[in-house]
Nucleic acid binder design. Sequence first.
DNA 1: CTTTTCACAGTCGCGCGGATGGGA
DNA 2: TCCCATCCGCGCGACTGTGAAAAG
Length: 679
Amino acid sequence: MQLENILPSSSINLPKTFYNLSSSDSANNSPGSSQIEYQEVERTESESTTAPKKYLSGAGMMGDGEGDSFSGTKTAPDGRKGSPVLGVGVGVGVGVGGVGEDDLTSGRRYNIDDLGSDRYFISSSSQAGSDMANPCSLFPYAGQTGSVYGASNGSRYSASLHYGSVLPPAGFSSSVCSSRSQFASGGYQFGQGPGCLYPSYPATGSSIGSMSLPGSAAGARAQVYLCNRPLWLKFHRHQTEMIITKQGRRMFPFLSFNITGLNLTAHYNVFVEVILADPNHWRFQGGKWVTCGKADNNMQGNKMYVHPESPNTGAHWMRQEISFGKLKLTNNKGANNNNTQMIVLQSLHKYQPRLHIVEVTEEGVEDMSNEAKTQTFTFPENQFIAVTAYQNTDITQLKIDHNPFAKGFRDNYDSMYTAPESDRLTPSPTDSPRSHQIVPGARYAMQPFFQDQFVNQLPQNRFYASERAVPQTNSLLSPQSEDAANAAAAAAAATQRWFVTPVQQTGSNKLDLSYENDYSAGGLLSYGIKPLPLQTSHHALGYYPDSAFASMAAGWGTRSTYQRKVTTGLPWSPRPSPPAFPPEEQLQAGAPPKDKLPEESGAPPSASSSNWIETSHSLKSVDSTDSGVYSMVCKRRRMSPGGSSTENSPSIKCEDLTTDEYNKDNPKGMGYYAFYTSP
DNA sequence: CTTTTCACAGTCGCGCGGATGGGA
DNA sequence: TCCCATCCGCGCGACTGTGAAAAG
């Protein structure tokens, strides 16, 4: 197959044979078994933070509920169970945990989160035993919510895409598995039944890439970081919804990745594929999403979006953030004839985006002689339900709060900068509403995009104060239920399945590693994510100049002082970026490694924070009313005055920051990334 | 009744063209 | 005076969610 053929039309003709898994495999892997394995994994996770040894079964999360997971054991029918390959294939893609014991040795993937959608593996160097000492990365694996549903017709992309060769199940083809047939015979679990051709979270393949076998031509250990993961998590907790229109609607949050571990000179095609996440048709009822019948598996249309810069060298891809901000979703099956690539989806179906990295020739042609050059990455938090109109007002509000294009719907937008300084949450040193800096020093400059994508956390304060423990909530909790949720949150937090290294546990408080800490100052510091060298000045995304974070990260040295000064509760407060500085440096800089934001530490929030909390409750109260009333009352709900402004002030103040400025010292804000990695 | 489509108002970025300033 | 580079303002198009109407 020539991947170039899909550019720009995205029309791909790929052999489907790789997905032609036998139904017997499916039968052999019942959802039930998956479930069991999953539970076992969870227990293990909660039990130990130091000896994550039980991730053998690939089954895991993916299969949870949906049963389309496959067990690690079966993944390696060829007796390679436990091999790095196995672990990869299973672990990553499926999320499942499909990391074999051996994998633990070589691959080191620790499931550190118990929240289905927010599981992380803290990976470390490949050296055995170094995991604890060198926790260098966090990468989510496909959680239970991330299971990918295979079309019953046996060909997920029968309509427009036959990319089997490009996207071998689980990226499996990647170096990890020398033979795709291994997977086929290996027996993926297809909980969906006979028709399911796709194992859950093939994405795992990503790691696969990293776990390539010795001597493998595709030995590149690719690591993919979800740059704006915090934002995705915000939406994910309420079940992300994505509008689809005939003309095509951009995703928000959009997919944005950082890639490392590629061969600098090799050429790659990078593209996103959106596949059904489950076999259900969904509807928003009673303030929450419920399944309603079976999904239409026969939906035709393009499901892939090739990054416009493809093909390009590994150096190119790694030099900058790979954003898919211009990716559009549509429900128009006839779309895609124009210049813009659009992914055709079906309303009220749940989808899972996946990132594929395919090594190609300089001309963009895939080397068919080597199947181990495809790597696939899946982030469960990227799941979303396609809708033609927003259903959950929480999602709507999040969109308005974070999407620069929706600024016009922020009621308090005009008053954001007219409020008295004392009322302002924005600690801008200047009175200029359009100041480029949110704090003295260019290092704190932030761009709108960046702020929105990475820094903004106000919504949580306002609406989801206690939802940290409610990963999949629809945010319709009543005040009472929210209290219950709070209690549950504590319990849940206590059982968070984070595998932490000694460093991570310095705080002696596991709660620090809870759900949102991955992008909080304290939480991030613990992980010691390695920084990525970013010097690019190029950004594919025009409207969303993904920047600013770098400069911000560059200023962590003084950040701590700043944070204390302006209160940590500020929604836009720059969070420390572990990658930017090694923990030691942060300490030297005077930044408390574990200082937490109010909502995280439970410390008394600032006055403004209190206001937010109250607002939150009041809002929740409204929200919690019966579904019938709910939708009406929540229409165009607004947050407390100044809330948005605070949240967005950075964007406005920094909107003029140039991309170059950002890139020059952009550490890539790794602290905000979730990533798949290969040991 | 649910879902989809459409027009709308608002914001934003980009590109074009004119104005301005400096140098030859 | 001419040429060139830079700056600024305006208009256009892209993009957003809203809300009503249409469609199923």
